[in-house]
């Protein structure tokens, strides 16, 4: 019978009785209020309201802020005054509609081929590309014969031979792209102290990626009034700080594409950036294909698991357990 009463009703009756008996007085020796009853939540409440808890929380907060200030030198959540200008960060590049931008889009391989030509004829004079081998071009932008012919134009030192000396041999497909300078010191010496970075991963290594490199290549201009550029430096608003050692290199008609595309500055910049994007992510096309597959497979699997879960749980959820009291046969 007791079970027919809900727990809430039980509690209500108890507390009502308690307070009422307090008013009554004759029936209870001590006066207790519902709020002072010793229960688990009340104990927790009293701990939380204690002075020790307040002091501890204050100490933790102050300590955390002090530690942050010690680590980073400034107060958290407060802006700092910098003696710098926004131009030091470089102009934010515009987002360009790259042919490989969409989640389903591959690289434009004709553009990679043109971009390789631009790299070889223009960029390779100063920049290395030492993570790309000749064999990587095969099946991407060149045939095996073309890549082999290009590799053989370059002499590589190999050995030691049977006489113990290093020797020169024409390149093979397994060789990596030749570097313009033998080491970093030679590169700095050849470029007035500035080191032309390796371009293998440059698209991944710069904020803004392809958009930034394209903007940088096409963004050279005369410095605005009031901006002093040192001798030997060039003004480029996209470069952090504005002054870049590399001069503008792409001019209309600098290279002659073998597929007849007009070699404007922006065309060449677009092609070489596409090529460098490929160099940063040679797995790009394959990766997006796997992405399509994974998304399809896992969404179908999710839908099917939901159905099967429902199928398996249906009988369990619909199960009803009822008790029929035994009827008295003698009546």
């Amino acid at each position: 019978m007791l079970s027919r009463l809900s727990a809430g009703a039980f509690k209500k009756a108890a507390s009502a009785g308690a307070s009422r008996s307090a008013v009554n007085g004759a029936r209870s020796a001590s006066v207790r209020f519902a709020s002072t009853q010793a229960s688990g939540s009340a104990a927790l409440e009293s701990v939380l309201n204690s002075r020790a808890a307040l002091a501890t929380a204050t100490a933790v907060s102050v300590g955390t802020i002090a530690w942050y200030t010690h680590l980073y030198g400034n107060l958290p959540f407060l802006g700092e005054a910098h003696a710098s200008h926004l131009s030091d960060e470089g102009l934010h590049p515009q987002a360009y509609p790259w042919s490989h931008k969409g989640v389903l889009d591959t690289f434009d391989h004709a553009s990679i081929r043109r971009g390789y030509q631009v790299y070889r004829e223009v960029c390779a004079a100063c920049h290395s590309l030492d993570r790309i081998a000749w064999r990587n071009l095969v099946g991407v932008s060149h045939t095996a014969d073309e890549a082999r012919a290009m590799a053989e134009e370059v002499e590589y030192s190999d050995g030691p031979g049977s006489d113990g000396e290093m020797f020169q041999r024409p390149g093979k497909l397994a060789d990596y792209m030749p570097a313009p300078y033998p080491n970093e010191e030679a590169a700095r010496a050849g470029n007035a102290g500035a080191y032309p970075p390796d371009l293998s991963l440059i698209i991944k290594a710069r904020h803004g990626g392809a958009d930034y490199v394209f903007s940088l290549l096409t963004g050279y201009q005369d410095p605005p009034a009031g901006v002093e550029i040192r001798e030997g430096m060039n003004y480029n608003p996209y470069f952090p700080g504005g002054a870049i050692s590399m001069a503008r290199v792409l001019f209309d008609g600098l290279v002659e594409y073998d597929d007849g595309t007009p070699a404007t500055t922006s065309q060449m910049a677009k092609d070489v950036v596409t090529f460098l994007s490929w160099a940063s992510e040679p797995e790009h096309d394959e990766r997006k294909k796997y992405g399509i597959k994974a998304v399809i497979i896992f969404s179908v699997l999710t839908a099917l698991s939901l159905y099967v879960k429902r199928f398996k749980w249906g009988p369990i959820k619909n199960r009803k357990i009822s008790y029929n009291p035994p009827a008295d046969k003698t009546h």
């Binding site: 497979i297 179908v300 699997l301 099917l304 698991s305 159905y307 099967v308 429902r310 199928f311 749980w313 249906g314 009988p315 959820k317 619909n318 009803k320 009822s322």
Partner: peptide, 28 residues
């Protein structure tokens, strides 16, 4: 007693479908 009958897939008429779904889950 709460009624869960809307939750139940009809095991008789959809038997082939249910097995098909379980089988497809297995296949994928």
């Amino acid at each position: 007693v709460p009624d869960f009958s809307h939750y139940r897939t009809n095991p008789e008429s959809n038997r082939a479908l249910s097995y098909f779904m379980v089988g497809s889950l297995g296949v994928i």
